[in-house]
Design a binder for these strands. Sequence first.
DNA 1: TATTACTTGCTGGCTATCACGCAAGTTTCT
DNA 2: AGAAACTTGCGTGATAGCCAGCAAGTAATA
Lengths: 204, 204
Amino acid sequence: MPRQAAAGTRTQRQRREETERRLLDAAAALVAAGGSRAVTLQEVGRLAGYSRGIVNHMFGTKDALLAALVTEAQQRVGPPQASSPGLGRLRQRVARYIDQISAGDEHARAFLLLWAESVGAAPQLRAMFAERDDLFAREIREDLSAGIADGGIRPGIDAEGVTLALIAVLRGASLHIIIRDAAPDSTARVREAVLACLQRSLEP
Amino acid sequence: MPRQAAAGTRTQRQRREETERRLLDAAAALVAAGGSRAVTLQEVGRLAGYSRGIVNHMFGTKDALLAALVTEAQQRVGPPQASSPGLGRLRQRVARYIDQISAGDEHARAFLLLWAESVGAAPQLRAMFAERDDLFAREIREDLSAGIADGGIRPGIDAEGVTLALIAVLRGASLHIIIRDAAPDSTARVREAVLACLQRSLEP
DNA sequence: TATTACTTGCTGGCTATCACGCAAGTTTCT
DNA sequence: AGAAACTTGCGTGATAGCCAGCAAGTAATA
């Protein structure tokens, strides 16, 4: 058991954790601002308040840093807000997704941008995105199924198709918001349009 | 007026035009396969069947090549299929957009990937994408307006919001198709889901 | 508690790699 | 022959990652 460090100092564990967090934050900010191309060891180190050697020391390689960034962004999503699955929770998901991007969350933006760039990325990263994709789709299908069961959603829908389309619209809208640096009122409009479209598509 | 070249040879104009086309095709293929990061002067030259200096000779800089690629992709979209604006033409647009990506059109894929990467890109490129964006949105709104006028679309919709959402879903779905290398039957399903969603959202 | 041995965090000089683009030279058309 | 298309050699700049060493924290000993 590590002894408590003296006042004004940090334990090795504290140092490491703080460094890791600052590096991930810096990397997220750089990706959000300029894509993965803007992530250089030099810049990450500088923005995090360290030297340019820090990334290699902490993560080994730049790719490992990006992988850690993706992993962290996934875990940040957090538990569902509404307790019970169904149309209500689905609507919450949609609003939350767009609002998070619109609010300027750099980790969420970085995740999305890295996903959009992942065509030429390392297989490891692509696999992580695929996994996240499938999990997201499963969650949405769960809401759809519950909605059909409780009567909030009409039974005739193609759940698989709706799921894919819904994920697509969220990503497309979010990328648009990031790329065009859309104003909050504009993003609110998109959010409402998506919700309205969802409503009419799913209502019995 | 250029004289007819001898058999087996080409006029200078033919040489230049063929070279330009081969370079654009090569660049599109590279972007489609691995994003703009995969586009190096060496690779473009090799894939097009020239030396590594050919891009600088033809376009001056690499950025100019990418700009030309974007310009060309815009012009490739071509005239609308259905003559009269309205819901029918809108549905055609949607189907055509997704089918083009799904069919593996490298220029269309390259355009979309470059758009998705354009966060950190040169202002010139970003402006081109913004312009294309606005034009696309205008075309869709034209269809919506016509549809409302002829009664095919109910008047209560938020045309601006629907337009943005529609563009978003097309881009998100296309990126998904490219990134996950989706099978044709899967893309057909997404296409039908989007069309169905559109139908229910817009029908009177 | 004070000293000493050890571990871990962190730095920055160094090298190898890679890509862009210029400029001079070569081939192909007119 | 002259012009244009195209190639090749070269310089420059950016970046990733290795590694030797310094500094900060931790554990052992007296």
